[in-house]
């Protein structure tokens, strides 16, 4: 099992259903800076005409997660299927993981007195036919959660037919949020930068498989 999420970010309408469903499902502490999931908004004007792109985001559950490497107490760890989690009772709030995370996916939950983050809803998504709260609730079905090891999973089936990219791939953490690039070339160009590396399943699979084999020794069962 190697859990990941594909995002058809082109579908996103910034309605924030995912954010609310996440907070309700997981009892996330209220507060504007307390988010396990969020929508990145890039907007501006080109020759006076407004444009906007939305990048729904959350923890990337990186295969080489720097937040796990820096944790002095092993509070940050890989759980089953490579899901990055925090043991609240081991967390000493040094916030090293928050510094290490390239995606700013972590925050302090004052009620637990620990760092909190996305868990891919592992309490509900790992059962047969289960999925995360954000995927289930999304009106336009941006997300596909699934197992990269399973050739027949929804996510692998999708990734095999699409091109995709990662956010901040250059940090080398092997993130597992796959942003599905639009098939339409004009729209594809509009939402990525010149430096964005475009991948296909064939080209990415060996690298991810290798990394998974290397790091999965640390995964808890």
């Amino acid at each position: 099992m190697n859990y990941a999420m594909a995002l058809e970010y082109q579908n996103c309408i910034n309605c924030k259903a995912c954010e609310v469903a996440c907070k309700e499902e997981n009892g996330v502490q209220l507060g504007a800076d307390k988010q396990r999931i969020w929508i990145g908004v890039v907007e501006g004007t080109i020759f006076g005409k407004p444009f906007a792109n939305l990048y729904p985001s959350q923890c990337n559950h990186c295969i080489d997660a720097p937040c796990v490497s820096v944790c002095p107490t092993n509070a940050s760890h890989f759980a089953q299927g490579g899901i990055v989690k925090v043991d609240a009772h081991k967390c000493i709030l040094c916030k090293g993981c928050m510094e290490a995370c390239p995606y700013d996916a972590r925050f302090v939950d004052d009620t637990m007195v620990a760092v909190d983050k996305c868990t891919f809803c592992d309490h509900r998504s790992l059962v047969e036919g289960g999925t995360t709260a954000c995927q289930a609730t999304c009106p336009t079905k941006v997300r596909t959660f699934g197992d990269l090891d399973d050739e027949n999973s929804d996510i692998v089936k999708l990734l095999k037919t699409k091109r995709f990219f990662f956010q901040k791939e250059y940090t080398g953490t092997l993130p597992k949020l796959f942003y599905i690039l639009p098939d339409d070339e004009a729209y594809a160009k509009q939402s990525v930068s010149h430096n964005t590396i475009i991948h296909t399943w064939e080209d990415i699979k060996p690298m991810y498989d290798e990394a998974r084999t290397r790091r999965s020794k640390e995964w808890r069962r």
């Binding site: 259903a17 954010e19 309700e24 609730t137």
Partner: peptide
């Protein structure tokens, strides 16, 4: 689906 309001 349930939107933000529905989930809230």
């Amino acid at each position: 689906m349930l939107c933000a309001r529905g989930a809230a």
